[in-house]
Amino acid sequence: MGSKNKLKRFKENETFSNVVQPKREEIFEGFELKGKWNEFFKNDCPIVLELGCGKGEYTIGLAQRNPEKNFIGIDIKGARFWRGAKSAQEEKLENVAFLRTQIELIDNLFDESEIDEIWITFPDPQIKYKRTKHRLTNPVFLKKYKHILKPEGVVHLKTDSEFMHGYTLGLLQGQGDEILYSNHDVYKNAGSPSEVLEIQTFYENQYLEQGKPITYIQFRIN
């Protein structure tokens, strides 16, 4: 993507009512929406996050299917989620927002027990050992998720990485967390939720064309 196109998207994001882009000092000095996200959506519906939302395809797909829930796509790359934010505006999806931030800061942006569900879709598996701290299901991230999730809150992991799937399963079992459902090839083995099968991102379609199995885990952090 050219720099001019990126700048255009950054500018347009600033005009979207469904895009929140806090400055770093705002995040650490007391983010005004922390604990008040239902006020942002003007309802008391459950709040669901998609972490590393990319173009926002999954956030939009979930919001279209679940008008009784609010969805927030989170990514640091605003020029990327611009597409999702614009689509939500065009389709008048009032239960969608996009938040530009680093995922490791989410416990500064959401209050304790404020979130009902978290989706992690096709994250970078960070296979090298020295990159373990960046894996979105490592113990540090899981602790942050537990803090912002309601006691019965659920996390969904959908990935093309068998490594990420196995790493997460092993970690959850070791910690004594509750694995609600696991499938190492959702399109080959029946039983996955419809939202896992019916929403496909651009990259997921590429993985499927390459013959890569898509895996899914649904779990609760105890």
Results as ranks from 00 to 15, higher is better:
Pro22Cys: 10
Pro22Leu: 05
Glu25Asp: 13
Glu32Ala: 13
Leu33Ala: 04
Lys34Glu: 04
Gly35Asp: 14
Gly35Lys: 09
Trp37Asn: 01
Asn38Cys: 04
Phe40Asn: 06
Ile47Tyr: 05
Val48Asp: 06
Cys53Val: 05
Cys53Trp: 02
Gly56Lys: 11
Gly56Leu: 04
Glu57Cys: 07
Ile60Met: 09
Arg65Phe: 08
Pro67Leu: 01
Pro67Tyr: 02
Glu68Ser: 14
Glu68Asp: 15
Ile72Cys: 06
Gly73Tyr: 01
Ile74Cys: 01
Ile74Arg: 08
Arg80Lys: 08
Phe81Arg: 03
Trp82Ile: 02
Gly84Asn: 10
Ala85Phe: 15
Ala85Gln: 15
Lys86Gly: 05
Ala88Ile: 12
Gln89Pro: 08
Gln89Thr: 08
Glu90Thr: 13
Glu90Ile: 12
Val96Cys: 06
Phe98Ile: 06
Ile103Trp: 00
Leu105Arg: 03
Leu105Gln: 03
Leu105Ile: 00
Ile106Ser: 04
Ile106Gly: 01
Asn108Tyr: 15
Leu109Asn: 10
Leu109Arg: 13
Asp111Gly: 15
Glu112Pro: 02
Glu114Ile: 06
Ile115Arg: 08
Asp116Ala: 15
Glu117Trp: 13
Phe122Leu: 08
Pro123Cys: 05
Pro123His: 02
Tyr129Phe: 11
Leu136Ser: 05
Asn138Gly: 09
Pro139Glu: 11
Val140His: 09
Phe141Ala: 13
Leu142Cys: 12
Leu142Asn: 12
Lys146Ala: 14
Lys150Ala: 03
Glu152Ile: 04
Val154Lys: 15
Val154Met: 14
His156Ser: 05
Leu157Lys: 11
Lys158Val: 12
Lys158Pro: 12
Asp160Thr: 00
Asp160Ala: 03
Asp160Gly: 01
Asp160Met: 07
Ser161Trp: 02
